[in-house]
């Protein structure tokens, strides 16, 4: 796959509530590759995730985002989703009164991926089985009263059903116990294919061990300050960010606990 088929971010500057959070991010995630994005708390990881998805609260002041050969810098979230971008939320939002099934059907319909009712239920049941989600969740209200782990698994379920071309996982591994983490990581691994790029935002080495990223990027103070192969993540796991960012970045709260 040519690189133009994936995600290309150039010199992206983003402000929210009048404050600049991203100060010139350059990043490419070609189709078929898994990239990890790491960085201390407050470095702008979630801002980048939300900006890539088109959250209206984040203003792009300069730079551009291209995806699948198209300039998407000014597209709305729903338009980006229809191009195949998917964000697995760090904090999935509860939608009372809208069942998982109805929500998924509405989402698939809007993306032109509608299945006949029977096929849809079959596919949904199969994916729920893989992710070890109780079938009763089909008729539960979306994320309403779900535990943290249930929410994260439901995000991966949506991803499995929507089959995106770029999946952004924003700390999908946070708050998961070992078993849940393995289920989620397996779920993502099974979806990997040559047409899909994956951007994994994480604090932890453990999920990267399972997902085997092609590249690791370190975000600090709104910029990508280091990029390398999977080895870079192991270094951070062992020694923290200090060797890469210098002592000022290694304050106790900047380190994952």
């Amino acid at each position: 796959m040519p690189r133009s088929e994936g995600l290309t971010v150039k010199n992206l500057r983003v402000t929210t509530a009048g404050k600049e959070i991203l100060s010139g991010v350059d990043l490419s995630v070609p189709a078929g590759e898994v990239h990890a994005l790491m960085g201390p708390n407050g470095s702008g990881k979630s801002t980048l995730a939300h900006t890539l998805m088109g959250h209206p609260a984040y203003t792009i002041t300069s730079g551009s985002i291209h995806f699948a050969g198209q300039d998407i810098t000014h597209l709305r979230a729903d338009q980006r989703a229809r191009l195949g971008i998917f964000l697995s939320f760090q904090y999935p939002v509860a939608v009372p009164g809208v069942t998982v099934v109805n929500f998924l059907r509405a989402a698939m319909r809007s993306q032109g991926k509608e299945l006949p009712a029977r096929e849809f239920m079959k596919a949904l049941t199969a994916e729920m089985e893989k992710l070890k989600i109780d079938p009763a969740f089909r008729s539960r209200y979306l994320n309403d009263g779900f535990s943290g782990g249930e929410k994260k698994r439901c995000e991966i379920l949506q991803m499995a059903m929507l089959k995106p071309r770029l999946a952004i996982l924003d700390e999908t591994d946070s708050g998961l116990d070992v078993d849940a983490l393995r289920i989620v990581a397996d779920g993502v691994s099974q979806l990997r294919n040559p047409d899909m790029g994956v951007l994994v935002i994480t604090h932890y080495y453990r999920i990267l061990e399972q997902l085997q990223p092609d590249y690791v990027h370190i975000l600090h103070a709104g910029k990508i300050v280091a990029s390398g192969e999977a080895e870079l993540a192991r270094t951070i796991e062992k020694s923290g960010y200090e060797p890469i960012l210098g002592p000022e970045a290694a304050s106790p709260e900047a380190l994952p606990v």
């Binding site: 998917f86 939320f89 999935p92 939002v93 009372p96 809007s110």
Partner: peptide, 23 residues
């Protein structure tokens, strides 16, 4: 935003939310 990020246009999202409100 959560719902539009799945591809559902915002007017449709509002309809789903209103419907869900009464569910």
């Amino acid at each position: 935003f959560y719902m539009t990020s799945r591809g559902i246009p915002s007017h449709e999202v509002d309809r789903l939310i209103v419907r869900g409100f009464f569910e």
